[in-house]
Design a protein around this nucleic acid. Structure first.
Length: 669
DNA sequence: AGCACGCCGACT
DNA sequence: GTCGGCGTGCTC
């Protein structure tokens, strides 16, 4: 009996065996995608191994999914991603599977040919995939029947699918390109180049807005180019069409979001990713991954060129540039970043209860009076970081997460910034019955409210990450505006048209628990500094407001990236922290605290036996569901130990959920 | 994950 | 007396 070992998209570190029924046994090979029944449902799976043995009670493979089987390098790439992200191979493989549309598979399996002389449809002599044909020409079923009957078209079984190709060389580049118009110009040059070399390009964007505007530009400038756009907004059918067209090689350029990384583009040479630090390049749900890392791993295995385009290199790229793995490139730009003065200012005496120091208010008045706009950059959403009693010192805390609840004046509710729990504040203090409420810390709403009080006649705008900023709308409005917002305001259109940027509270960026917080702030800040005021005639200014202590640490953010990163990178090198090694957090969540600890302790022992440095177990930080406990273990290890750590961790936690414990593995690499 | 099975509260 | 909440267990 022929038996196949399958990687299935389930959160289990295990492969599953199915037998190959005789009609399939010589078509299925390692790398094929097949459909099977698994626990009362149908799943697609990747064939990882084939062998001949006798085993009872195996279910059969139902059919082959009509897509290209994976080659060796594709397999290596997926296996590598599975290792570095500590995810089951099946969950990685699922990213590469076509959208599930079994009703369409019968069309994917056939190819159309036209009789000589039939020119109504543009079908090459090699024929065309029937699914592509149906979707592009939308022939009604009646016409189709007629065509078949009259012998004007004929069908054949789809021939072998295209094979993967790879390139012997791999090159990595960092381009510092500030402005959209320069980036477009740069792309045109790259397209021209690629066309000459008969090579194909993938452009990866962090959000729909930049993707759409780029698409419009490219379609206008290069009308003959075969462009494929791919993102989550496409319907399943459109996605499958794009998938199949790419597989067939019927394209010159793919424009997409991170989902496009997983298209079966076997002949792709140029890979471009814009603004790699942007949130959109990271998947925040399982399987969690970073678009840049996925591309990097692909190139290491399959070769090609990777061009990273941004303004300030994030930590990982800075590391690669220092090590010489990435080459730094400059693109000549017509626009130049503007000279600007950066002023720091400490808070007014706390008695005044105003967020913005007087010099800042004066500057806002001066700038807006001259018709230019102002950006106020705030880190926290909501009104205040805490709400409490002015008499006894009580303040609201999340009963689950043990952090202060954030007060939203808009909705008159308290929200937990960790778990999203909603609490309605009482009229009087629940401890001392006092009615003198007090709030601490400045959020977006408070800053905006203050701006409205000080400048009642100005146009003001409040923007947080939830809202989509329509740049066009603002550009068309003639009046100056004052924008108060979170990092969502650091958009090119807004920055270029503003003459003043205010960092409202520097310490709120410095004291975040994330150990990359400083570096993340530097990248955002650097981008803002470069783009600010470019389209404004006025002198541009930046105000940074913060506590005395925070302001003394401001100097580092004015350094060049090489200087800024050098100290932090040296520290990380010594400790073996990312990007020099892997930092793993193994988090168990359970209603039984001891159950987690028991497993973590024995895992720790096992890892230590193998010579790894393990920290913990210690209580997990952050979000905790009602009545549940979190315990976590930290492991830091170099590249050469990845295999060993993976094997150990996986043997201890083969299931993401078992015996009342939910496991999560976070990887920083 | 997602689906079954099982064990307790509010309803025709 | 059943519908349906979710807490556990298992998947070739």
């Amino acid at each position: 009996m022929k038996v196949a070992s399958l990687a299935l998209p389930v959160p289990v570190f295990q492969e599953f065996s199915y037998f190959l029924p005789s009609p399939l046994d010589d078509t299925v090979r390692v790398g094929s995608i097949v459909e099977v029944e698994f626990h009362q449902r149908l799943l697609m799976g990747l064939v990882c191994a084939l062998q001949v043995r006798n085993e009872e009670n195996l279910k059969p493979i139902l059919r082959i999914v009509p897509v290209s089987p994976w080659g060796e390098k594709q397999m290596d790439w997926a296996k590598r991603l599975s290792k570095i992200y500590f995810l089951p191979l099946g969950e990685i493989a699922q990213l590469f599977f076509p959208p599930c549309l079994p009703s369409q598979w019968k069309f994917l399996e056939q190819r159309v040919f036209t009789q000589d002389g039939e020119s109504r449809w543009d079908i090459p002599s090699g024929g065309r995939n029937l699914f592509i044909f149906r979707e592009t020409f939308r022939v009604s079923s009646r016409t189709w029947q007629k065509l078949l009957k009259e012998g004007l078209v004929r069908l054949e079984r789809e021939r072998t699918f295209p094979q993967e190709s790879s390139f012997p060389e791999k090159r990595f580049f960092w381009w510092r390109i500030l402005f959209t118009e320069s980036r477009r110009q740069w792309c045109l040059e790259m397209i021209e180049n690629a066309q000459r070399e008969r090579r194909k390009i993938l452009l990866v964007f962090p959000d729909f807005h930049s993707l759409d505007s780029f698409e419009a530009f490219i379609r206008k400038r290069c009308p003959l180019l075969r462009v494929i756009k791919y993102d989550s907004r496409l319907s399943a059918k459109k996605r499958l069409l794009a998938f199949r067209l790419v597989e067939e090689g019927e394209y010159d350029l793919i424009l997409g979001t991170r989902l496009a990384l997983f298209l079966p583009a076997f002949d792709l040479y140029y890979h471009v990713i814009f603004d790699p630090e942007e949130k959109g390049h990271f998947s925040d749900q399982i399987p969690r991954y970073s678009a840049l890392r996925v591309l990097y791993e692909k190139l290491r295995i399959k070769g090609g060129e990777l061009h990273v385009v941004g303004i300030v290199p994030p930590l990982g790229i800075a590391h690669f540039l220092r090590e010489g793995e990435f080459e730094e490139r400059d693109f000549p730009e017509n626009n130049l970043p503007k000279r600007k003065t950066v002023k720091t200012i400490t808070y007014e005496s706390r008695k005044q209860r105003l967020v913005l120091a007087p010099p800042i208010r004066e500057e806002i008045a001066r700038v807006t009076a001259q018709g230019a706009s102002v950006l106020l950059w705030v880190q926290k959403m909501g009104y205040a970081s805490a709400l409490g009693c002015g008499e006894c010192g009580f303040y609201y805390m999340c009963p689950d997460c043990e952090v202060a609840l954030r007060y939203h004046l808009d909705s008159k509710f308290l929200w937990c910034p960790r778990c999203g729990r909603k609490v309605e504040p009482a009229d009087a203090c629940p401890i001392c019955r006092g009615t003198l409420w007090e709030n601490w810390g400045e959020g977006l709403e408070k800053v905006h409210a203050e701006i409205q009080t000080i400048f009642p006649k100005h146009h003001t705008l409040r923007i947080d990450s939830e809202m989509f900023v329509e740049g066009q709308e603002l550009l068309e409005s003639k009046t100056p505006y004052i924008v108060v917002g979170t990092s969502a305001i650091l958009r090119e259109e807004l920055l270029r048209r503003s003459a003043l940027l205010v960092v409202v509270s520097l310490e709120s960026w410095l004291y975040l628990s994330d150990f990359n917080a400083r570096e993340e702030f530097y990248v955002k800040w650097g981008k803002a500094l470069q783009l600010l005021g470019v389209d404004v005639a006025l002198n541009t200014q930046v105000f940074v407001q913060g506590s005395k202590e925070a302001i003394t640490r401001m100097g580092q953010f004015l350094k060049s990236w090489r200087e800024f990163y050098s100290e932090g990178l040296e520290k990380r090198r010594v400790l073996g922290y990312p990007p020099f090694g892997y930092l793993l957090r193994i988090i168990g969540e359970s209603r039984n605290k001891d159950a987690c600890l028991l497993v973590l302790k024995s895992l720790q022992e096992e890892l230590e036996k193998k010579g790894m440095t393990v920290i913990g177990p210690f209580p997990g930080s952050g979000f905790r569901k009602r009545g549940r406990w979190k315990e976590e273990l930290g492991v830091c290890f170099p590249e050469q130990d990845l295999e060993a750590v993976f094997e150990t961790v996986v043997s201890f936690l083969p299931y993401r959920r078992r015996e009342g414990i939910t496991w999560d593995i976070e990887v920083d690499a």
